[in-house]
Nucleic acid binder design. Sequence first.
RNA 1: GCAGCGUUCGUCUAGGGGUUAGGACACAUCCCUUUCACGGAUGUAACACGGGUUCGAUUCCCGUACGCUGUACCA
Length: 527
Amino acid sequence: MARPVRVRFAPSPTGPLHIGGVRTALYNYLFARQQGGTMILRIEDTDQTRFVPGAEDYIRRSLAWCGIELDESPWHGGPHAPYRQSERKATYQALARQLVERGQAYYAFDTPAELETMRQQLLASKAEHTGYGSQTRLQMKNSLSLPATEVQARLAAGEPYSVRLLVPAEGEVVFDDLVRGQVRVQANTIDDKVLLKSDGMPTYHLANVVDDHLMEISHVIRGEEWLPSAPLHVLLYRAFGWEATRPQFAHLPLLLKPEGEGKLSKRDGDRLGFSVFPLAWDGGAPAPETDETGPDDEPTPQPTGRSSGFREDGYLPAALLNFLALLGWHPTTDQELLSLPEMIAQFDLSRIHKAGARFDIQKAKWFNQQYIKQLSNEELAQQLTPELASRNLSLPPAKVVAIGGLMKERITFVKDIVTDGAFFFEPPTEYDAQVVAKKWNADLTGYLAALQSALATVPQLDEATARELTHQVAEQRGLKPGSLMQGLRVALTGAPGGPDLMGIIAVLGQAEVEKRLGLALAMVPLP
RNA sequence: GCAGCGUUCGUCUAGGGGUUAGGACACAUCCCUUUCACGGAUGUAACACGGGUUCGAUUCCCGUACGCUGUACCA
C-alpha cells in the first residue's frame, strides 16, 4: 500500500488540448507534488487516423505555460521510456498474445461490416445483450466459435484479426473509486472489447492498462467519461494477474456547458465568446471532437482550424489554474484565491465533487482580475509593454509603470489598459455628453484657460504639483476645486470616470496637458 | 434501449440527523471615492420529487423524475 505515488496525464494528440484536459493534468500534478510523487505524461497516439501534427507540441507548450511540470515524458525521458504508445507497439502485441495463450482473450475475424450487421440485427430483435459478449460471441467469427484448424488456417493465411478480451459470463466487478466510492457492475454487461486492432495497434483499453502497469502508476486520475470502462480495465488487470498492483481510480466530474446540456465543447466557446483551449491553436484542422459525433447532434460545423486560447485572451496562468482547480474541488476553508503551493498543500482527492461543473467564464474573469491586482506595478508594466508594442504605442518605461499602477484595480485583462485607458496614449476624440451639458460653462472654460497658461509656471508636473496647481488656479478664480474636477477630467480624457486625475495629469505631462486643454477649449460650445 | 454515475441559491460550492443551510461569482442597494473602479456593508436567491427509518431528515435507505457519461478495431 505504501507504494510510491506515480500519476500520469495521458492525452491523445488529436488536436488542441481541451481546457478539461488541463484540469485533469492539474489534479494529477497537485496530487503528485503533494505526495512527493512523480508526474508522468504519456502520449496516447494509438489511433493513427486521428493523429494531428503539432498537437503533441501543443500539449507540451500548454502545460509549460500553465506551470504544470512533468517528471517523465516523451520530451524529458524517464525510466519507462518510450512514453509514446505508438513506440510501444511490440509490448502490447506480445502481451495480447500472452492473454490469448492463457485463454483470457481470443482472436476475432469479423469485418467491420459484419459487426455492423450483427449489431443491427441484435438491435432489431430487441435482444437483451447487443454487445459482443458472452451472449453473442459464439455467433461471431472468432477462435472461440471456429474450429481450431480454421483459426490456424486464417492466421496462416495472414487474414486480418483483432484480439478481444474474454469477459466472464457471470459475476460482479467491484472496485473502489477514490471519488465515487464503491462501483459495482455485472460482468455480463461488459463487452468483449477489442484489445488489439487489426492494424496491430492496441486500443486505448489495452495500451492504457499495460502502460499504467509497466510504468508503475499508483493512481489513475482521469475524467468521468472513463468510468463506464473502468470495470473492463479491472478485468484486464485481473486477466494479466496484476490485480495486486492495480492503480487506484479517481474519476473526475466533467466540465459542462455554461448553459444547456452536455460536456463543454469548442462550439460553446465560439458561441459564447471565450476560449476552451489554453493556447491559441492554428495547427490546421483539429480532429473532429468525439463528443460531438453522436447521431442526435446537429451537424458538426467544419472546424476552422483556428481557435483562440486563454493565454491570448489575457489570462494569467496562475488565475486559470486557480479557476480550474475549484471546478470540482474545494479546500476545507472558504479561501478561494489559492497559489499553486497552497493548492498543492491542500489538495485532497476525497474532496473532489461528484457532480459535473458548469463552466462559468464570469468567475474565470474574476480570478484574473484578482491576480492582476496582486501584480506589482513593475510586473504589470512588463506585461503591458508587449501589449503596447503590438499596437505601435511606445512610452518611457517609467510612464508604463505609472499607468499600470493607475489602472491595476480597474481591469480584468492587461490589454484592457489599452482600451479602457486609451486616453493615456492619445487625446480624446469626443467628450462625455452629460458632463459637457452639465459642467461645461463659463466658469469651467475660464478655469481651463487659466490652468493652461499656469502650466508653464511649474518646473515639472508630478502628482503633488498637479494637485497644487489645479487647486490654486481654482481658488484664484474664486471657485471650488471640487466643482471643476470632473470638467477637467472630461477635458483631458473625454470620460466621466477613471483613475485618479492627478495621476493622469502626471503621466500625461505638461506639454500634453496644455495641448489637450487647448483642444477641449476649442470644442466648448459656448454662446 | 441497456449499464454506470449524478442532483444544495442563476453559476462554482461548504455543510451534514436538530443550523437563521455558510462562502464565492453574477445581480441590486448603501458606504468609501467631489469621478469610475477597488474595498467594505447589506439584500435577492437553494437542499429535484415521493415514500420509509427516526422524537426529528436537506443529511441515512428505497423508489420516481430529470440530467450526464458510456454503449467504436476513438480516446
